[in-house]
């Protein structure tokens, strides 16, 4: 893939945190490109710098070295064309589901009837049509995370970043959400960067899986996932799926 048509392009990006015990190399240097409409999963051991990587792409943290470019423009500060979903749902407890989804629009001063309708449509897409008036404390963990996903999509971002969005969920809900997110992705065709600890989750959803080394995280392997789309429950039963998961798992055990 050439850099020209890359949506997101990271080149030799590295981060060194200054801490009270001296400098701490948290990430890289590492390079990766994400194409338009591509789903990239980033897999890595705990503490290897995955969340740090995400902070760079959102513009919350400047890289200590290298460059991060989105749509041909260097990322120097937060940008409005990126959507984020965190590990925790991070909703506003004092706003109902509908207003939580609309919050980015309100903050950016772009509220309109069209956006209002879109929020309704997104809630329907994530299966929460009947819960628009509910408050976060009245929802289950999985429902909250769905609200967060709808919120991440409301301003029609070019790139959706997700930092272990399902980590706080139980195994059953997690699997269900994975399948749902997969469907949402196939419908909306966004570029997605998903950070995860789960190998099957990465293989199931992504077009490519990048595996990071322990801290400071560098890319030690990129796996292209050839599984046919649309993917569903059957996909997980394919021998190709299991074989890919196995291959990736070996990277961690050795």
């Amino acid at each position: 893939m050439s850099q020209a048509n890359a949506k997101l392009s990271l080149k030799n990006v590295s981060v060194t945190y200054r801490t009270s015990r001296g400098p701490l190399d948290a990430l890289g240097p590492m390079s990766i490109d994400v194409a338009d409409g591509e789903f990239v999963a980033i897999l890595g051991p705990s503490g290897c710098g995955k969340s740090t990587l995400l902070k760079i792409v959102t513009g919350l943290l400047p890289p200590s070295g290298g460059s991060a470019v989105l749509n041909g423009v260097p990322i120097v500060k937060p940008r409005q064309d990126v959507g984020i979903v965190f590990q925790q749902p991070t909703l506003l407890p004092w706003r109902n589901v509908f207003d939580n989804v609309l919050e980015p629009i309100r903050v950016q001063g772009k509220y309109s009837q069209e956006m209002h309708d879109k929020a309704g449509a997104l809630l329907e897409m994530v299966g929460l049509a009947g819960f628009a008036g509910h408050y976060p404390h009245e929802l289950s963990g999985g429902m909250k995370q769905r609200v967060a996903i709808a919120r991440g999509l409301i301003h029609d971002p070019q790139l959706l970043l997700m930092d272990e969005p399902f980590a706080a969920l139980d195994a059953l809900t997690r699997e269900q959400m994975t399948i749902e997110l997969q469907e949402i992705f196939e419908r909306t065709k966004k570029s997605v960067v998903l950070i995860t600890h789960s190998i099957p989750e990465a293989v199931f959803m992504a077009d490519r899986v990048a595996v990071l080394s322990p801290r400071p995280g560098r890319i030690i392997h990129v796996e292209k996932i050839g599984l046919q789309r649309p993917r569903g429950l059957d996909t997980m039963a394919l021998p190709e799926f299991t074989a890919t998961c196995d291959r990736l798992r070996r990277l961690f055990t050795h």
């Binding site: 902070k55 959102t58 513009g59 937060p78 991070t90 407890p93 004092w94 903050v107 950016q108």
Partner: peptide
Amino acid sequence: YNPELIDLYRAMGASRWQIFWRVKVP
């Protein structure tokens, strides 16, 4: 406040004033 909420708002491009009224005060 929840620091992740602040990160989220900064990532949305919220101003300091917006973060104060929309996150910190509530």
